[in-house]
């Protein structure tokens, strides 16, 4: 079975969170207008990403960063045309033009940039096929990438309020750390501004108060907190009315408003339903 939907309704950050926390293996196909992307995951980690309208090819990137010369790339391409069974990177290594580690680092950068670019899609159909595995012959490197930093970096590039408003309705909301932060959250890399916001999250101060204390803009603070939410570090709750009962987790704990029912009453209803 496939998970299908549209990024307009379920953002890429949310989907990556699902893949990460669900330790999903499979392929995620994304389509928007004439553009298409394919991402492969193994146990919640990103293995590979490719996009049809790629801005920069591997050979171009290697030349731009000075790792190979245009002539070396041209030679490898020529060899590739004569022997289509090999990928460009493999041929560059075989010819001694680049070290394997260096090539892998660039492929990883290319994969990351591909994913970051997808965060800019305001919409697009997605289809996740669980269990689909990558054909290893198709790629030159299989370095599994943790998704949480991809989310954080991808969210840094979000420049529209709409996506943020999905999670943060207004600045009166209270951010707080989730009860059980994921173990992998420890490896998330934060910028100085993100740390400034992070350090002021205490479950009591609203986003508005954090904006005031950090001096950052409303958009920047909201975007940063959205990134924390997307990465599973933080959740936001609505401020409670002054006469409301003491705060509890979202799961709720006390049946305060309804009046706590007696056990015998609940037991009677249970028996009735069971007998239906």
């Amino acid at each position: 079975m496939a998970l299908v939907g549209n990024l307009r309704d379920f953002a890429l950050a949310d989907f990556l969170y699902l893949i990460d926390r669900g330790y999903k293996t499979g392929s995620l196909q994304l389509n928007r207008q004439s553009d298409e992307a394919m991402l492969y995951f193994d146990k919640g980690k990103l293995l590979y990403a490719a996009r049809s309208q790629r801005s920069e090819r591997l050979g171009e990137m290697l030349v731009r960063t000075g790792k190979v010369t245009p002539q070396q790339v041209a030679h490898a391409v020529q060899l590739q045309e004569n022997d289509s069974g090999h990928a460009l990177g493999v041929l560059l290594i075989e010819q001694g033009y680049i070290a394997r580690d260096e090539l892998q680092r660039h492929i990883q950068m290319q994969i990351e940039e591909t994913v970051y670019g997808l965060f800019g899609w305001p919409d697009g159909e997605f289809c996740f096929n669980a269990g689909t595995k990558l054909d290893k012959d198709d790629v030159q490197s299989l370095v599994p990438l943790g998704v949480e930093n991809l989310i954080m970096e991808g969210v840094r590039r979000v420049d529209e309020w709409g996506r943020i408003k999905d999670h943060i309705a207004n600045t009166d909301m209270l951010p707080r750390f989730v009860d059980q932060p994921h173990e992998k959250a420890k490896s998330i890399n934060l910028t100085p501004d993100e740390w400034r916001v992070f350090a002021r999250i205490n479950g009591k101060d609203s986003i508005k108060e954090i904006i005031s204390r950090t001096g950052l803009s409303e958009f920047d603070v909201s975007r940063i907190i959205y990134g924390f939410i997307a990465a599973g570090l933080v959740e936001v709750t609505r401020p409670r009315p002054a006469n409301a009962p003491a705060p509890t987790t979202r799961a709720g704990a006390a049946a305060v408003a309804a009046g706590i029912p007696k056990r015998s009453l609940v037991s009677r209803i249970i028996n009735r339903i069971r007998g239906m």
């Binding site: 029912p261 007696k262 056990r263 015998s264 009453l265 609940v266 209803i269």
Partner: peptide, 14 residues
């Protein structure tokens, strides 16, 4: 029934 079990956990003794 599952909801009632949740309610039961929060219910009071007689």
């Amino acid at each position: 029934l599952e909801l009632l079990y949740v309610i039961m956990q929060r219910s009071t003794e007689e």
